[in-house]
Each structure stands twice: as C-alpha cells, then as structure tokens.
Nucleic acid binder design. Sequence first.
DNA 1: CCTGTTTGTTACTTTCGAGTAAGTTACTAA
DNA 2: TTAGTAACTTACTCGAAAGTAACAAACAGG
Lengths: 220, 220
Amino acid sequence: MSDRKSRDMSEDAGKTGGRRLPRAAREAQILQVAAEMFAAQGFHATSMDDVAAACGVTKPMIYSYFGSKPGLMAALLQRTGRELLAGLALMAAIPDPEARIRATLDLLIGRLYEQTASWRVILSAMRGDGPLAEQARGYRAALIHAMLITLAELAPPDLHRAIARRRVSPYAHALLGAAEAGSEWWLSTPGVSRAETEATATKVLDAMLVPIRRDLAASV
Amino acid sequence: MSDRKSRDMSEDAGKTGGRRLPRAAREAQILQVAAEMFAAQGFHATSMDDVAAACGVTKPMIYSYFGSKPGLMAALLQRTGRELLAGLALMAAIPDPEARIRATLDLLIGRLYEQTASWRVILSAMRGDGPLAEQARGYRAALIHAMLITLAELAPPDLHRAIARRRVSPYAHALLGAAEAGSEWWLSTPGVSRAETEATATKVLDAMLVPIRRDLAASV
DNA sequence: CCTGTTTGTTACTTTCGAGTAAGTTACTAA
DNA sequence: TTAGTAACTTACTCGAAAGTAACAAACAGG
C-alpha cells in the first residue's frame, strides 16, 4: 500500500519506544540488552547480530560504539564494576563495623536483585583467562576485600590486622557465596518476597558472626 | 630419516602415555579432558579440535564416540551426575539427620576437591535453556533436595514436613552456596589445607543450625 | 532550504568451528 | 598369513558469526 516503507511497531524486544536514539541512550540500551543475553546464554553463545536485533538496530551500530565483541563485554564489566565500587565507597563511611557489614550485605542483595544479569556476567567472565577475566575478578575481589576488611575490624585491637584478615577470609567467601546462592534461589522461586530473603540473610549473618568472633578472639 | 613417520613423544597434554587406547579408556580420557577445558574456558569457547588435540587424538574420534558436541556434554553431565547421586544414596543410609547433614557436606567438599572441573561444568551448564541446562539443573536440584529433606528432619515431629521443607529451603541454598564459595576460595588460595576448609565448613554449619532450629521450632 | 553531522542500513569478506566421507594403520584370532 | 575389526587420520563441506566498506536517511543550525 504505502510506497514509503512503513515500519511496523510490532517488534518485540527491548526497544526504547521510538527509533533513532542519541548515542548515550543507545549505548546504555545496548549494554543492558547485552547483559541480559550474556547472562542467559553466555558470552560466546550470543552473537552480535542477536544483540543488535534485540535492540532493534543492526550490527554495525554496536561496532561503531564499542569496537568489538570483547570491547562490548569490557564496557559492560566496567559499568557494573564502577557502580559496585561506588556503592562500596558509600559503605566505607559507616563507622561501626557490624553496621557496615549489614549495610554491605544489603547493598549486595539489592544489586543482585536489580542487576542479576550484570552480576551473572561478572561471575561467568571470571572463569578462564585473558584481560576480561582479570577485569571481572578484580571487581569481585573488591567486594570480597571490603567484606574482609570490615570483618577483620571485629577483632580485638591487640590482634594484628593481617592475622585477623587471614582468619576471617574463609568466612567472607562463604558469606558472599551464601548471599549469591540465596539470591539465586529467591529469584527462581515464585512467591518469595525480597523482605523474606533479607530476613534470612540477616539470620545467616547473625549466626555466622558467632564463629567469626570466636575465631578472632582465640589467641595466636 | 625414517620413512616410517616416527611419532615423537614430546606432545604435552593429558595423554595416557601410549597411543591407541581401547574405547572405554579413550572415552574416559576425553570426558576428563573435556571437563577441564569446558570448566576453564566455557563450553562454547572450547572447540572440538581443542579437546581432540589435548587428548592427542583427532576430532572424528570424538564424533564417533559421542556423536556431537552436545552429546559430549551430555555424557559428561551424566557421568558426574551419576556419581553424585550414588554418593547421595549412600548418605541416605545414615539415620541421624544431623550426622547425615555433616556427611553430605563432607561428600560435597570432597567432590569439589576431586572434581572441581566437572562441578563447574554443571554450574555453568545450568544457565540458559535447552535439554543440557535441564539435565544440569536436575543434578544440582538432587543435591539441594537431599539437603532440604535432611534439614527438615530436624523439625519437631508435629510440624508438617512440607512446611518444614519450605522453611529450611533458603538455608539449604545458602549452605550449598557457602560450601561452593568456600571451596573455590580454598582451591585458589595457596597454603590452605583441606583440613582447614573442612574445619571452617563445620563451624559454618554449626552456626547455621542455630537459626534453622529456631525457625523450625517456631509455631505456624 | 541546503549543508554538515549524527544515526543508521545493506551487502559484503573472511575466519573459524561443527560435522563427515573415505581411507589407513595396528591389534587379534583362526 | 591373512582376514577382519577396532582405533585412528586426512581432507574435505558447509554454515554461522566477527568484522567492514560504502551508502542512506534524519535532524540541527544557519
């Protein structure tokens, strides 16, 4: 009918509504869509055409904005990592260690809730080698380190910081693993509120503080 | 010099020493090598040629034994899953719930120690969809379920089993996640003994049993 | 309205990896 | 020794996905 090729609006994916977005908005959209697809199917199993199509755009756009597929991944990791580090920086202002631990755990659960996809991308990018893996490991290490430092502050003041950190290290990892697994469970289980997840997390944290304090109190 | 092409023995990878293995042995070797490579770089990032080369064999061998790349993956998952289920079946014979939980946790840590690669393959195969993901989720679900059932047995006898299971569910996931993360930490940290890992795991379990029992004891 | 810049597309090239057909070498047993 | 079979290779096809060059349409400001 129309000789002007009328674009139908019936396409499915994460379009921002209209077409022709300004660069910054398109970049943000591509990052979000890529995070979801990488999380769902893995980096290598997702093609650039797939990402482009899900954005309602064609491949050369992504290349013009991100350069390459690893470049897209790096941008994604950087974005997520930056936000994480910013959040952690805020936590550092809380003076009481125990309060800071709780706040950090809340922050983590919130992140897992709102940005599950990005977090999964980081987790799976960590495995293997290459610069992307290094980058991903760096961000997770920052999170672990923040937990570690704060837990170590629960030690009696006469205990060397280095020793305290060494002692709480397994607990920091276990705690983070528990938080991740718990969030995963809660995301995949219908009928569970976020409040319930946080309540359980609090109970688990309270419980784990007991052996942590005991280990820190032990001499030598 | 020699017109008989003399094969040098200087190749690197997981060869079983000589060449020309009987089918069963070659299959086992391929599965092991594939597990390590899939764990290190991911399923999609690993080519059949890579696996074949690491086995000191060529691609058509793998195809003749496993049919396709997904077929290889399925065989891998099946082998690991079977062994896991067999281990869990042994645990079921332990009458006391708390002892069974400890034994299951030990079993899990042992598995993670000896078969890190396979376990990582299961974890990463779970994401996404398709029959392979279903299969992987099934095996992990079996493990979770075993924990769940056993934890629920700690409930007072007048509490409905279904309610008890629902209540311990988040803890089962958190516990498994903590065990995984702790093992991961221990594998990647030099100078940490397995005994230390198990000691920490015991402490974490003891600590978490407190809120678990409390939640189970609460009425309604 | 026309001119440059930004946003976008079509239509390719090229590389890489899954899968296969047909042939070769070694072991085995009569 | 000689057939027969099990283990293994070489040398391909074919499709999919990374990356690119060249071109088209929209919007902005004069």
